[in-house]
Design a protein around this nucleic acid. Structure first.
Lengths: 218, 218
DNA sequence: CAAATTTTCACCCTGGCGGGGTATTGAAAT
DNA sequence: ATTTCAATACCCCGCCAGGGTGAAAATTTG
């Protein structure tokens, strides 16, 4: 285990040449350092705990636990760790599953080192670097799954306070809870709720919640 | 109308300065040429027919027909025209709708000219350039609507009757309504609902509805 | 067949929710 | 300066939702 500074990158890649190459690239880049380079995802949790990375460079095709499963495990346990998937394939199913597993980026192995380093910086800063082709597939997947919700787009203009209340309703809070959360009177919340119902053309909390989620009002 | 070579770009942008700037950038770049620069989407079809672009640079915020509607119209009629959305805002709803409307890329107006030219090349070559932050939002939207395959969920094993009741709850029906819809007693519905709550670990209709929608239980 | 599960129905009670008002304040728009 | 609207707050009333308990058919399962 070496001393690590800046953004700590852990590498999961079964090909030793590539693995060593990535490690060299990381350690050779100011602000980056490799805190672990592994050939497989065995003892995954232990490896992550020991290396304590900010970003994980994850190969999808690995012996044993595959990269997508590993991604799912890591994001479930460490939501703040960014995972950059890298692969030789760009098929829809893998992309879809990787995204659902919580990947923050998806790049091809053919990506030149300079772009790869840039990608690591981007995930670290909340971005989601994707090879343009991958991005295109994501958009197409999205269009494929979205029409179910993009139906009646009435323009509901809720005030900021109303949106706030609605958001808390979606989380399942009672009006009393919402009141104490926002440091407001219970009756005030009820007034807001009544207005929300009028604006959304609904008559119950469940309906409001359903509409809020479906139309992404919160 | 000027003579056009290479990739023909049409620009829709209400701000004259930006519009002229983009036009200059396009015409000043080898392989690109501006085949039309418009301040609004009036006579949209006629404008597209006349300029016959390969790529459309579309501003979302425009007087009259907004950019998303324009995108929808163009992609419906000319599926091969690539549309690059550009905007100052990066809010989820606009991104979502733009993607559903068929946009091929989504960049911020703050994108430097060099990156913008690169983005035009990328859409033309089947890619989907996105600002890293936008890409991140797209991924998050995706994760929000896609957990259909994430099997690591809890014991949400609802009986078929319970799923049926839950589905009617999601549609906003009252228990009395559900009872008469299913030709059952009101008390029966209440019993089912209580069991649903226990299984989903919730304590109200709103929570159950939210969980049902989010976890794709209906 | 017996056991387990699902589905069905019933009653009581408390409290929160939905609908109807009314009213004051401050900020933004005109 | 006046109007409009968002945000705040309170009242009453009725009813449905949520919780507990119990139990009897029907169906699936062992």
């Amino acid at each position: 285990m070496q001393y690590c500074v800046g953004t700590k990158v852990a590498i999961f890649e079964d090909n030793k040449l590539l693995r060593d190459g990535f490690e060299a690239i990381c350690n050779g880049t100011p602000g980056l350092s490799c805190c672990g380079a592994y050939a497989d995802s065995n003892s995954l949790i232990h490896k992550i705990e020991r290396s304590n990375p900010d970003v994980v460079l994850m190969d999808i095709e690995m012996p044993g636990i595959d990269g997508i499963t590993a991604t799912r495990i890591i994001t479930a346990r460490w939501p703040d760790i960014k995972i950059l998937i890298q692969t030789v394939f760009e098929d829809d199913d893998k992309i879809f599953n990787a995204i659902c597993a919580g990947a923050s980026g998806y790049i091809l192995k053919s990506t030149p080192p300079a772009k790869m380093v840039e990608a690591i910086y981007e995930v670290q800063n909340g971005g989601s670097p994707m090879t343009p082709n991958i991005a295109n597939r994501v958009l197409r997947l999205f269009q494929q799954f979205a029409p179910a919700v993009s139906t009646d787009n009435e323009n509901y203009i809720l005030s900021s306070r109303e949106k706030e209340v609605l958001a808390l309703m979606v989380e399942g809070n009672s009006f009393h809870n919402i009141a104490s959360t926002l440091f407001l009177s219970y009756e005030t919340i009820r007034t807001h709720v009544k207005r929300i119902y009028k604006k959304l053309h609904v008559a119950s909390a469940s309906e409001a919640v359903a509409k809020a989620i479906r139309q992404r009002l919160v």
